[in-house]
């Protein structure tokens, strides 16, 4: 190799701080570009958000009827907190991007080759891209859902601490969702189609995650099972903390989120390590 080439291929000496700064800037740039790319789909995002009006209105009516028959308190929820809970849970549930389909398509079209050839982590690249897309959807959903709930049951009876704790829990919740769905996508290296797994996971999340009915309202022993399953950390946890903040419960749910994230992250790491050895890209 000639001298010029040698100079070019030698790594520039960089301290850990610089490397960390450059890595952060890299993944933040991906997040920003992904958010901008999704603003091109703004009409689709708005239509999806408008669907929340129908959803909150119909389920809100069901809750109103239930409360009319059972009194003004149900497992600690008032009609107001119940509708706001529903709105908070739907904000998260309906903002999930089609992560598995996007990656499946990249594998099939062979565009995966570009991403794997970049000097960045494939998992973190996808995480940043996912966050960019999801944050756009979350923001729009939050505006629409808050307006609907406001019109439907009036201002929320929630405290400032709940409002401050909510973004933290939502961030962890959507990160757990990413890790779970990404692990499902990696199954593509062993099975031919991962869509059935993703479909089953998403339906279980909707049913057992407490999106329509808070987990407290579930009958036993279903309640106990749902509480320990990872689904509750994605939808129930953040929504419950927003509408009925409680320090003890917040600590417990936060711990559950952290443990779920660590376990799911470990599974993802093992799957990813095994999967990269099995890569076979279309067209070679």
């Amino acid at each position: 190799m000639d001298i010029l080439l040698k100079e070019r291929t030698q790594a520039r000496p960089r301290g850990p701080k610089t490397r960390f700064r450059l890595a952060c800037s890299k993944y933040l740039a991906i997040l920003r570009v992904s958010a901008a790319n999704n603003l091109a789909y703004i009409l689709e995002v708005i239509f999806r958000a408008l669907f929340l009006i129908v959803l909150i209105f119909v389920i809100g009516q069901l809750w109103k009827t239930t409360f009319a028959q059972h009194g003004s308190l149900l497992a600690g929820f008032t009609p107001n907190t119940m509708v706001w809970y529903l709105a908070a849970a739907e904000i998260i549930a309906t903002s999930l991007p089609a992560l598995t389909r996007t990656i499946d398509q990249e594998v099939r079209s062979g565009e995966l080759a570009y991403l794997l050839g970049r000097p960045c982590s494939y998992v973190l690249y996808n995480y940043s891209r996912y966050l960019g897309e999801r944050l756009v959807r979350l923001a729009l959903n939050a505006v629409v859902a808050a307006c609907v709930a406001l019109i439907f049951v009036g201002p929320p009876q929630i405290g400032l601490v709940g409002v401050l704790a909510w973004p933290v829990m939502v961030f962890l919740a959507i990160t757990i969702e990413f890790v779970c769905y990404f692990a499902i996508v990696l199954l593509a290296f062993w099975t031919e189609n991962t869509q059935p797994f993703a479909f089953t996971f998403s339906r279980l999340e909707l049913v057992l995650g407490g999106v329509l009915i808070p987990i407290e309202v579930f009958p036993q022993p279903l309640r106990g099972v749902a509480q320990i399953l990872p689904f509750s950390t994605m939808l129930y946890g953040p929504s419950r903390i927003l509408v009925r903040f409680n320090v003890g419960l917040f600590g417990q749910l936060l711990l559950q989120q952290v443990i779920t994230l660590m376990v799911a992250g470990l599974i993802l790491l093992v799957l990813y390590t095994l999967a990269t050895r099995r890569v076979s890209i279309n067209g070679g």
Binding site: A113, L116, G117, T276, R277, V279, S280, I281, G284
Partner: peptide
Amino acid sequence: KMLTGILY
């Protein structure tokens, strides 16, 4: 793809 490190 092997020379770019994508395939083992």
